[in-house]
Each structure stands twice: as structure tokens, then as C-alpha cells.
Design a binder for these strands. Structure first.
Lengths: 245, 245
DNA sequence: CGGTAGATTGAAGATCCTCAATCCGTGTGG
DNA sequence: CCACACGGATTGAGGATCTTCAATCTACCG
């Protein structure tokens, strides 16, 4: 399923040196953990960072890889997935602008991260980042808070996977994406879906056919409109009631 | 489903003052975040702690409650659950000796915590604990690491919920419990099940009937033996192969 | 001994999955 | 420019798994 060119991306796509515009103008500035930093601290962080870009289907890192760096997504979309020994896959989530990868500063990554579209990231070499954090308790505090939020999101997802019907799952997925897009200032009416149906299925614990059927059902009932590359929300209230709580 | 006496437990069960034996002899000492502390730090922490005990079906705190304290389980078992607006429940997990509740130091709890059996805890008033942590970066670091581990466990659980069959779910639940019991030095052959079948079902995204059927199947196939209050593992290898990866 | 809560068992049914065919959009080559 | 191939998405039919509903069993406790 994973394309042959999806080896872990090396720094070849990386512009060594500061990004042209720096953190101040970063698209992710306001949504990421960076938002908690003072201008001064931001400069320290910036000194550590390297901009990089990877193409669709390229892997940023793989499950069980030694974590050499942590990342902040500044543009694009990343799929976070896990593989079961027997080949079954589960998509843990999708990282968008402002999302931090390797938040928990683990020794090894617990998921595989692959770009769905051309994606820009801010890369922090792990040891340097850890050193910086060690000297800035309130940055660590911020990371920890964020981890707590992630944990709560993970709980939402468990609830979704364990106790919801296919219809609710797909509706909730769309509502959730709509909310995220709204927060990062993207069009939240015509939702771009950078991931494929199989990715959505693997995220929701469904099959591709069921996802497809639910989407066509929503489309037929005029709740959404399926458009190339995404969906347009036609009846937000109805979609939210389908998502049920 | 929740008993009427399951209001949030107040400090009435709490022995105000230091525990008789102190942290040094604490049953959870070696398994909890406390393991990372020096004797000196442990004393500081101890000064902040209050021992308390709650009975079965008593709630320690409820979802969306303001988090006034964090807890370390020193004995017993706690059920962590979430309720959907329509009444569906999901059990996020079970806390045993050494497990920390409120790890992420959230403002409000994201789950409801209820004792399954008489349970002892070490209670830390939240503001005091936060202040202590703020002055001890490596304790915060330790908490953060632990949060990362929790996140990884949550991912395991998502995989379980989304991509596994009923048989695998129940088998994996037993294997996981066995491993946890082994780590905290409890009998890992005859597994005590302090939670009811409904709790297990709500944890695995199944119905009580399916859980019951799987257990009886394992029993008939001589993989386990159902005993009052728990199960005895008869064929560990087989159970692990049923849990599949 | 009867009452209750939890657990088990059975039968019937719904949801979702599997398998297979078809469709659609895009890119390629004749 | 059209034919074709390809990958992804959709649709349909049939089937498996798990749920639902209901009855029964068991253990515990007054």
C-alpha cells in the first residue's frame, strides 16, 4: 500500500540555514506550541530550526525509528499511522499546520508519518531541542499541556472507535475536520480531503466501501456535496446532529 | 448504571496527616513517577501528600470536574470512563497500583474515576503539586515522559478498537492485564478481574454478551479457566497467539 | 429460602464486511 | 485528439460477525 518511494525523507529537501522569513511570519506561529514563547525565546528556537519540504507519499519518519528530530508542520498534511504485524493498518490521525510531531520527545517514534500533499515542516534536532526545553520549564510545561490535550483527543477517538456507528464516525470525522480547518483559518465549508478514502477508513475503523457509502448517503441527502478533492458542507446542523454529541 | 452512592468522594476517608509509613515503604513507590525522585525530593513530595481510601463504587472524581488534586494509586483498582451525551459509556482504562491520575495536570478531568474495590490513594492538592513540579524540571520531564507513554498506550488501544476482532480484543485484554500484574508483582497466572463484564465490554467496544461468549469459548478450549472473581491462564502461549501481535 | 445483581446462553436480526463489478478522472501514448 | 490504462472511488449482492432481545443460571446476601 505504501509507495516504494516512501523511504524516510533525508535532509536533501532541507534548506540549511534560517528560513527566509523566520518564525515571526511562520504560518504555524499562532497555532503551535511556539505561540507560548516570547520573541526572545522564539529566536533561540529559530536558531535550532531547519525548514524542509517533503512531497506526497514521502515518509518523514517510520514507526520504531530512532527519533532524531521533532517537527512542526508549517504547511500541508501528514498521515500518522501504525501497522499491525499482520499488515492491518490504523491511521492514528492527520497532522495539519501547527501540529507538532514528536511532542512527547520519545526515543523512538510510535507512528509512521507520511506526507499526503507537498508539506513543509520546521525540523528541530532532538538533542538540541531537549536541551533548550530543559532550560525553559514553562516551554516544557506548554509541551506537557499540549500532550494532555492530545491524550484527551485520543480518548475522544477511542470513544468514537468503540461506541459509534459508521454513520456517526464519518459525520464526526467531517465535523472534526471542519473545526480544525476553521481554527487554522482554512476554508471550513468546502473541506479539502488530502487523504484518500482508505485513509479515512483506516482512521475510523471501517472499510473503504463503508466510508464511501456513508459519504454518498450524506451527498444524496444533501447534507454534503462531494466535490473533487473534498466535500462541501451543505447542511452543517444536520451533519452535526449525525455526529451526535 | 452508576450506583447512587457514587458521588465524588470527599476527604472524609482521608487520614489528615502523613501516612504512618511514609513514601519509603509505599507499595507504589517503585512503579510510579515517584521512582524517579531522590530521597530528599520524595520527602518534599510526601509533605504534600495525603493518604486516602475509597470504597467500591465510590467516585474519586467525575468527568469535567475541576481538577483540585492529582492522585497516585497505592492499592486497589479504579475504572476510568467517559459518558456520551446519549448515555453510551466507554471505559478508557483501569488504574492499578502505581498509576497516576491527572498526570497531564488538566484544569478539568477528562474522565470519571470510580473505585472497583476498596482503593488507597495518595492525594496531592493540585496547586501545591504544580508548584513543586515547576521547581523540579526533571520531575516534570518525568511526568511528560510518562504522558508520552500513556499516549502510546492510547494508540495501542485505538488500534485494538478499530482493527481487531472480538476474540483478539478479549485475548489481548487478558494478556495486557497479565503483563501489568507481573510488573507490579501481583499473581499473573490467576488474574483477578476487579471489573465486571460490562466494564470489559465498554473498554473493548463490545457488548457484555460478546465478552461473556469469548471468555466461555476460551474456557471451553482450555486456554483459560474461569474462576470466581477472575480467570486463571492455562495456556499462555495460546492466549498470546489469539491476541495476535 | 427467596431476592437480586451479574453472568451466561440461545435465537433472530442488523450492521458492517467481503468480494466483485463498474465507474470516473487523470495521465499517457498512439 | 482519442484510446487506453491505471488508481481510486463507487455500487451491488451475499455473508459473517457482532448485537439485540429474552430467558436462564449462578453466586451472594439478607
Amino acid at each position: 500500500m505504501i509507495a516504494s518511494d516512501s523511504k524516510t525523507a533525508q535532509a536533501h529537501a532541507c534548506h540549511h540555514g534560517r528560513p527566509a522569513e523566520g518564525c515571526q511570519d511562520c504560518k504555524a506561529r499562532l497555532f503551535s506550541v511556539c505561540a507560548a514563547l516570547t520573541t526572545e525565546e522564539l529566536e533561540e528556537l529559530e536558531a535550532l530550526s531547519r525548514q524542509m519540504t517533503i512531497g506526497p507519499r514521502q515518509a518523514l519518519f517510520a514507526q520504531d525509528d530512532e527519533a532524531m528530530a521533532v517537527y512542526n508542520v508549517t504547511d500541508g498534511a501528514i498521515r500518522l499511522s501504525r501497522l499491525l504485524p499482520d499488515g492491518r493498518r490504523h491511521v492514528m490521525g492527520f497532522a495539519l499546520v501547527g501540529d507538532f510531531l514528536g511532542l512527547a520527545l520519545p526515543d523512538r517514534f510510535t507512528v509512521t508519518a507520511e506526507a499526503l500533499v507537498p508539506t513543509s515542516l520546521c525540523r528541530f534536532e532532538r538533542t538540541g531541542f531537549k536541551a533548550l526545553v530543559a532550560g525553559k520549564p514553562h516551554l516544557l510545561q506548554r509541551l506537557h499541556e499540549r500532550a494532555g490535550y492530545e491524550l484527551s483527543l485520543a480518548q475522544d477517538q477511542m470513544m468514537l472507535l468503540g461506541r459509534r456507528t459508521a454513520e456517526e464516525k464519518v459525520a464526526r470525522f467531517l465535523v472534526g475536520l471542519r473545526e480544525r480547518y476553521a481554527r487554522i483559518g482554512r476554508d471550513s465549508v468546502t473541506l479539502e480531503l488530502p487523504m484518500g478514502r482508505q485513509d479515512i477508513a483506516d482512521h475510523l475503523g471501517l472499510t473503504i466501501e463503508t466510508v464511501s457509502r456513508m459519504l454518498t448517503r450524506f451527498d444524496r441527502e444533501r447534507t454534503i456535496l462531494i466535490v473533487p478533492g473534498g466535500v462541501r458542507v451543505r447542511d452543517e446542523a444536520r451533519l452535526e446532529s449525525l455526529a451526535a454529541g
